[in-house]
Amino acid sequence: KELVLALYDYQEKSPREVTMKKGDILTLLNSTNKDWWKVEVNGRQGFVPAAYVKKL
């Protein structure tokens, strides 16, 4: 599985998104969309802005 690092805090704005804190390590589930990547964090799956994370 591929991991990404949260570069910034992000507060979810819809049920399809997830909240993350700067420094969190997230599991990358899908990065086919250039703007929104699907990740898993704390057992929850959802989208975060691709610009807010970096592949490890």
Score class of each variant (00 low, 15 high):
1 K>S: 12
1 K>F: 15
1 K>R: 15
1 K>E: 11
1 K>G: 14
1 K>I: 14
1 K>Q: 14
1 K>Y: 11
2 E>I: 14
2 E>Q: 13
2 E>P: 14
2 E>C: 08
2 E>F: 13
3 L>G: 04
3 L>W: 12
3 L>M: 15
3 L>H: 10
3 L>S: 08
3 L>E: 08
4 V>N: 01
4 V>C: 09
4 V>H: 03
4 V>T: 03
4 V>S: 04
5 L>P: 01
5 L>V: 14
5 L>D: 01
5 L>I: 13
5 L>A: 06
6 A>G: 03
6 A>C: 09
6 A>N: 01
6 A>S: 06
7 L>N: 03
7 L>M: 12
8 Y>L: 11
8 Y>F: 11
8 Y>E: 11
8 Y>I: 13
8 Y>T: 10
8 Y>N: 11
8 Y>S: 10
8 Y>D: 09
8 Y>P: 00
8 Y>W: 11
9 D>R: 03
9 D>F: 05
9 D>P: 06
9 D>H: 06
9 D>W: 03
9 D>L: 02
10 Y>R: 03
10 Y>A: 01
10 Y>N: 01
10 Y>M: 01
10 Y>Q: 01
10 Y>C: 01
11 Q>F: 14
11 Q>T: 15
11 Q>H: 14
12 E>F: 07
12 E>L: 08
12 E>D: 05
12 E>S: 14
12 E>A: 12
12 E>C: 09
13 K>D: 07
13 K>M: 14
13 K>Y: 05
13 K>W: 04
13 K>A: 12
13 K>T: 15
13 K>C: 09
13 K>N: 11
13 K>P: 05
14 S>E: 10
14 S>M: 07
14 S>V: 05
14 S>F: 07
14 S>K: 09
14 S>I: 05
14 S>R: 11
14 S>A: 10
15 P>C: 08
15 P>G: 13
15 P>R: 06
15 P>T: 11
15 P>W: 11
15 P>D: 13
15 P>I: 12
15 P>L: 09
15 P>V: 11
16 R>E: 15
16 R>F: 14
16 R>K: 13
16 R>D: 14
16 R>M: 13
17 E>W: 04
17 E>I: 03
17 E>K: 04
17 E>M: 05
17 E>D: 06
17 E>S: 07
17 E>G: 14
17 E>H: 07
18 V>Y: 04
18 V>C: 08
18 V>I: 15
18 V>F: 15
18 V>P: 01
18 V>D: 00
18 V>Q: 03
18 V>W: 06
19 T>D: 04
19 T>K: 04
19 T>C: 06
19 T>W: 04
20 M>C: 06
20 M>P: 00
20 M>N: 00
20 M>A: 02
20 M>Q: 02
20 M>F: 14
21 K>F: 12
21 K>A: 09
21 K>V: 09
21 K>D: 04
21 K>I: 10
21 K>Q: 10
21 K>G: 06
21 K>H: 12
21 K>C: 08
22 K>C: 06
22 K>N: 04
22 K>W: 03
22 K>P: 03
22 K>L: 05
22 K>S: 08
22 K>E: 08
23 G>W: 06
23 G>A: 03
23 G>R: 02
23 G>H: 06
23 G>D: 07
23 G>P: 00
23 G>I: 01
23 G>Q: 03
23 G>T: 02
23 G>L: 03
23 G>V: 00
24 D>Y: 05
24 D>P: 00
24 D>N: 07
24 D>Q: 13
24 D>I: 04
25 I>R: 06
25 I>M: 07
25 I>E: 04
26 L>R: 01
26 L>S: 02
26 L>Y: 12
26 L>A: 11
26 L>D: 00
27 T>L: 13
27 T>I: 15
27 T>D: 06
27 T>V: 15
27 T>F: 14
27 T>M: 15
27 T>E: 14
28 L>S: 02
28 L>I: 05
28 L>D: 00
28 L>R: 01
28 L>H: 02
29 L>F: 04
29 L>N: 03
29 L>R: 04
29 L>G: 01
29 L>P: 00
29 L>V: 13
29 L>C: 06
29 L>E: 03
29 L>M: 08
29 L>W: 06
30 N>P: 03
30 N>A: 12
30 N>M: 10
30 N>K: 07
31 S>L: 05
31 S>N: 09
31 S>W: 10
31 S>D: 14
31 S>P: 07
31 S>C: 09
31 S>T: 11
32 T>N: 14
32 T>A: 11
32 T>R: 12
32 T>L: 10
32 T>E: 15
32 T>I: 12
32 T>K: 11
32 T>D: 15
33 N>C: 08
33 N>A: 09
33 N>T: 07
33 N>P: 05
33 N>V: 05
33 N>Q: 10
34 K>S: 13
34 K>W: 07
34 K>L: 11
34 K>F: 10
34 K>N: 13
34 K>A: 14
34 K>Y: 10
34 K>T: 12
35 D>A: 15
35 D>S: 13
35 D>V: 15
35 D>H: 15
35 D>K: 11
36 W>P: 00
36 W>C: 06
36 W>R: 03
36 W>D: 02
36 W>L: 03
36 W>Y: 09
36 W>E: 04
37 W>G: 00
37 W>H: 03
37 W>E: 01
37 W>C: 04
37 W>N: 01
37 W>S: 03
37 W>T: 03
37 W>M: 04
37 W>A: 04
37 W>R: 02
37 W>D: 01
38 K>A: 10
38 K>R: 12
38 K>H: 15
38 K>D: 05
38 K>G: 06
38 K>Y: 15
38 K>L: 15
38 K>T: 11
39 V>Q: 00
39 V>C: 04
39 V>A: 02
39 V>S: 00
39 V>H: 00
40 E>G: 05
40 E>T: 06
40 E>R: 07
40 E>M: 08
40 E>L: 09
41 V>K: 15
41 V>W: 09
41 V>P: 00
41 V>N: 11
41 V>A: 13
41 V>F: 11
41 V>G: 13
41 V>E: 04
41 V>R: 15
42 N>C: 10
42 N>W: 08
42 N>A: 13
42 N>L: 11
42 N>R: 12
42 N>P: 09
42 N>G: 13
43 G>V: 04
43 G>N: 12
43 G>F: 06
43 G>D: 09
44 R>H: 09
44 R>E: 06
44 R>W: 05
44 R>P: 01
44 R>V: 10
45 Q>V: 13
45 Q>T: 14
45 Q>F: 10
45 Q>W: 08
46 G>S: 02
46 G>I: 04
46 G>Q: 02
46 G>T: 02
46 G>M: 05
46 G>N: 01
46 G>C: 04
46 G>Y: 03
46 G>D: 01
46 G>E: 02
47 F>S: 03
47 F>W: 14
47 F>C: 08
47 F>H: 06
47 F>R: 04
48 V>I: 09
48 V>H: 00
48 V>Q: 00
48 V>M: 01
48 V>L: 02
48 V>A: 04
49 P>V: 02
49 P>F: 02
49 P>S: 02
49 P>R: 04
49 P>M: 03
49 P>Q: 03
49 P>K: 03
49 P>T: 01
49 P>N: 03
49 P>A: 02
50 A>S: 12
50 A>F: 02
50 A>C: 06
50 A>V: 05
51 A>W: 08
51 A>K: 12
51 A>R: 14
51 A>N: 13
51 A>Q: 12
51 A>Y: 10
51 A>D: 12
51 A>M: 12
52 Y>W: 07
52 Y>I: 07
52 Y>Q: 06
52 Y>K: 07
52 Y>T: 08
52 Y>C: 09
52 Y>L: 14
53 V>S: 01
53 V>Q: 00
53 V>E: 00
54 K>C: 09
54 K>L: 11
54 K>N: 07
54 K>Q: 15
54 K>W: 10
55 K>S: 10
55 K>E: 07
55 K>F: 09
56 L>A: 06
56 L>F: 09
56 L>V: 13
56 L>E: 05
56 L>M: 12
